[in-house]
Amino acid sequence: MKKLLLLSVLFVATAMSAQDVDVVKGDFSFLKDQKEINVEFDYSKVTILKDKKTEAQYVEDRAKELNDKNKGVGDTWKKKWASAKELIWNPKFLELMNTIFSKEKKDVTFNEGLTSAKYTVIVEVVWIYPGWDAAVMKQPAKVTTNLKVVETKNKSNVLVEVTSENAPGDQWGNNFSNESRVGEGFAKTGKSFAKLLIKKGYK
């Protein structure tokens, strides 16, 4: 039993360190004097799981699977999944962005709806792996995104582009909620992106 628990911990630790963040393009220096940055989230092209299902197909399949086991459970889950973007994932990303900037004593705010801000961060969500938790063994969620800094009034002008692959999502102890695990992946994405912006744009 102890060996099994140890293997589980090592497995999760390895998965937790697998995030890959790369700068595709951009000079970050223009951000230095900015105090407010608008943020938008784009889920229009997201795929789910290793076989890259569309979100619609994933939701349909998962709801049917849960309903087949316990009638009505899948219908309830569909509502939880639909609300996760606004209630968990987007807020987690923003929370960690702002927390990291605050800890570094940088007077910058990232939030949705800041349409008067000169620049906008577009979080294009590319891929989500919800992970799983079977009490003794588990695998964290993973979130892959493209992060673009654009001019708010001319969003076709991409000034910075960063890819974040396989940002891990998990919590200590057991976490049986797919939506919550994915939320931790968004938190990790926000944390890593904030540190990158500080390093390259807010020295």
Rank of each mutant, 00 (worst) to 15 (best):
E86M: 02
N178T: 07
N90Q: 14
K69H: 11
P130Y: 11
V73M: 14
W89A: 04
G72N: 06
K85I: 05
F176C: 08
K142W: 06
Q139P: 00
E124V: 04
I122M: 04
K106P: 00
S180Q: 10
K80Y: 11
N157P: 02
S102W: 00
L159D: 06
L147V: 07
W132N: 15
M137R: 13
K80L: 13
F93K: 08
E165D: 12
N174E: 13
I100K: 12
F110D: 04
T99N: 13
E104I: 01
T144V: 03
W89Y: 08
K80M: 12
F176R: 13
E104D: 12
A82E: 12
V136I: 15
V73K: 14
E95Q: 13
N178H: 13
K78G: 01
T120F: 00
Y129V: 08
K92I: 00
S83H: 05
N166K: 14
Y129L: 15
E161G: 07
A134K: 15
N98R: 01
L96S: 11
N175R: 09
F110A: 09
P140M: 09
V143Q: 04
E161M: 08
S83C: 01
T109D: 08
P130Q: 11
G113V: 03
N166Y: 09
L66A: 08
Y119N: 01
K92T: 05
K85A: 09
W81M: 10
K69T: 12
V162A: 09
I122H: 01
E112Q: 12
V158S: 04
V125T: 12
G72T: 05
E124G: 08
K103C: 00
S180Y: 06
L159G: 04
N67D: 15
P130N: 11
Q139S: 15
T163R: 12
K71I: 08
K155C: 05
F93M: 09
V121Q: 10
K71A: 13
L94E: 09
T145E: 13
K80G: 07
T152E: 00
P140R: 07
N178M: 12
T115W: 00
I100C: 01
V123N: 14
A135G: 06
D68T: 14
W132C: 13
D170P: 06
I128T: 03
Q139T: 13
T109V: 13
G131I: 10
F110P: 03
E151D: 10
S177I: 06
K69I: 14
A135P: 02
N154T: 05
N166V: 02
N70P: 01
S177Y: 10
D107T: 03
T109R: 11
V150F: 00
K118H: 02
E179S: 12
Y119H: 07
V162F: 02
V150C: 03
E124F: 04
V108F: 04
M97N: 03
Q139A: 15
T109Y: 03
V126P: 00
Q171M: 11
T144A: 09
G169W: 10
N98L: 05
D170V: 11
D75W: 09
N146G: 00
S83Y: 04
K80F: 11
A117R: 05
V108R: 01
L96E: 14
Y129T: 07
T115Q: 01
M97E: 05
V121Y: 06
I88H: 01
A167F: 04
Q139V: 09
